[in-house]
Amino acid sequence: MTSPISDSENWQPSELERRRRAERQRKTQKNVLIAGISSVLVLGTFSIILVNSPGWISLRDTFFKWAYGVEVLPKVILGFTTNITLTLIAGSSVALLGLLLALVRTSRSPALTPFRFLATIYVDVFRGIPMILVILLIGFGIPALQIPGVTNEVLILGTIAVIITYTAYVAEVLRSGILTVHPSQRAAARSLGLSHFQTLRHVVLPQAIKRVTPPLLNDLVALIKDTGLISILGVTDAVRAAQIQTAKSFNYTPYVMAALLFLAVTIPLTRYTDRILRRSMERQNAQGLT
């Protein structure tokens, strides 16, 4: 039986250990210093070369005219809310549908055989078609059919096109995650009396989803960017709003503004998910230098 070491509170590191720690600290400081100096040197050199090159002034005025940028920013932001809304709606639909599809494809139930077959075809087809084609086909094709009761709203049709394509990507990622959970985990869960569905819900999926979080995040970031593609249907999103401004002024700063808005969402998202993931790994896995 385990008993805690009685005097663990008054434990003092030995002379040797203290020297080792000091040594490690000195090493860290030295590394930080080297990294700093090297960064300043390299980046400084680049900036000096850039600013002194012949085209710099016109480049700055066409792409980075800040006063003008700030002026058009509200319009671009207004457009950007469309991208965000679309991402939220499409993202949650894709998560749900992708999971459903992945479960169908990994199930072994004979009753689901036709669905398994259809799901496979669906994934094969929509993973292989450029999304812009799907957007054009649905966004312009469906209204052309003039089916009564079916919407002609390009924003809705564009969203559907995005959902259809991304569901295929996400279903594949989730399916591969489910397949990587070792069979012994299923055996253990079934031995505890858990049903097939409970085993999936409590044992297989939590492990599968954790494993595929990085690729899923990758898809989410790609989704945010790809919502910009529905601007070809005439939806006024950030890309389209910037395009309208640029067409008026022949200055490209609005595009740069739109780009910055996308970055403002995607970069923090990436960092945040990285951190969540690392923390859950740290909690679960054995500690060590490996």
Partner: peptide
């Protein structure tokens, strides 16, 4: 009605 203990534990790591 059965309890099973495996050679390799098979605890759920998550």
């Amino acid at each position: 009605k059965l309890g099973m203990v495996f050679q390799a534990f098979n605890l759920f790591p998550h």
